[in-house]
């Protein structure tokens, strides 16, 4: 468990894709008109998205870049940090990468190894589809339970310089077997890990659900959010009223379960909850499904991990 003091979220920069714009994601710095961002391939577009975010956040005080994405061997992150003369670490915990990166960065700052660092992540619908599922233009029927990778890039600057948003603590989750083999049902894969980390965090910090104004889960989608709440109700007798799932609120009228992708939770967190400042105590649960096509094809169950991050947003 982490307890941080004097660590602040100073600045952020966001890029959202065409579908996100269409479905009303507000307050982004850049909206893309198409999936290519002036590049020849979707992978290069994702690299350019991360690079643009970093260009807008990095200053001469930046001492470390941490980030990750969904591409194989975090390609987008590696190429986006190229040539910057700043140490960089790529992390991968699938869609929980946002939370694990922010926790890692905060740990470096609390240990006084660095004073200021930048976190960056992205997900690109077409690049992810190509890698995890089918070719982009192939109309593989998607079941209702499946989620849709969001196209976005988000960067956050964290330092010891005071601001309205305090990073107070968090915990790193354990990898849990979801018992699910169905790669379409990502919500069911991640809900189990989300519930376990949430309960762990409550017991570690000696708090209850009422101590938080908002529980923001990553990308469980509608299906996963229902399962998450049901587990808490059946197993722990906890009634959840202050919960929002980032995945479930994207693309409201699309017939799928919601959005997924490393950037989905980060995008909603900064453009909505940090922007409107309605909720003070926010517990973010970054939910990651550690699956790969190889694991699924060889009929293994899918492991999942959820990391927790506690923020306080002052008005």
């Amino acid at each position: 468990m982490f307890e941080f003091k004097d660590i602040y979220l100073n600045e952020y920069f966001t890029i959202a894709g065409p579908l996100e714009k269409e479905y009303g994601v507000k307050n982004c710095d850049i909206y893309l008109d198409d999936y290519y961002f002036g590049e020849k391939s979707t992978e290069n577009a994702e690299i350019k998205m991360q690079r643009t975010v970093l260009n807008n956040l990095i200053t001469s005080n930046t001492e470390l870049i941490i980030g990750g994405d969904l591409t194989n061997q975090p390609t987008a992150f590696g190429s986006a940090s190229l040539g910057r003369k700043i140490p960089s670490i790529g992390l991968y915990s699938a869609c929980a990468t946002t939370i694990s990166s922010i926790l890692t960065l905060s740990s470096f700052i609390i240990n006084k190894t660095i004073k200021e660092g930048v976190f960056v992540t992205s997900s690109h619908n077409l690049a992810a589809e190509k890698q995890f599922r089918f070719p982009v233009e192939y109309g593989a029927p998607k079941p209702i339970r499946s989620t849709f990778t969001a196209t976005a890039a988000v960067g956050i600057k964290i330092s010891n310089k005071p601001s309205n948003i305090k990073i107070k603590g968090g915990t790193l989750g354990k990898v849990v077997d979801s018992f699910v083999k169905d790669a379409h049902n990502m919500g069911a894969v991640m809900a189990k890990g989300a519930a376990e980390t949430f309960i762990d965090y409550l017991s570690q910090t000696n708090t209850t659900i009422k101590d938080y104004d908002l529980i923001l889960t990553g990308d469980l989608g509608k299906v996963g959010a229902d399962i998450f709440k049901e587990i808490l109700k059946i197993e722990h007798n906890i009634k959840v009223n202050n919960h929002i799932d980032a995945g479930a609120v994207f693309y409201k009228n699309l017939e799928y379960s919601g959005a997924s992708g490393t950037a989905a939770q980060a995008l909603l967190l900064v453009t909505k909850f940090i922007h409107i400042k309605k909720y003070k105590k926010i517990l973010c649960l970054g939910t990651g499904s550690l699956h790969s096509p190889l694991l699924v094809n060889q009929k293994n169950t899918i492991p999942t991990v959820t990391h927790a991050l506690y923020l306080e947003v002052e008005k």
């Binding site: 029927p141 079941p143 209702i144 339970r145 979801s178 018992f179 699910v180 049902n185 069911a188 189990k192 299906v223 229902d226 399962i227 049901e230 587990i231 059946i234 197993e235």
Partner: peptide, 23 residues
């Protein structure tokens, strides 16, 4: 929650495909 219970919960809360309409 053991494996069987969890998979039953997942099955209960996962929306069914409209097979008749699709067919």
């Amino acid at each position: 929650m053991n494996k069987k219970e969890y998979l039953e919960l997942v099955k209960k809360l996962t929306p069914k495909e409209e097979k008749l309409k699709n067919t």
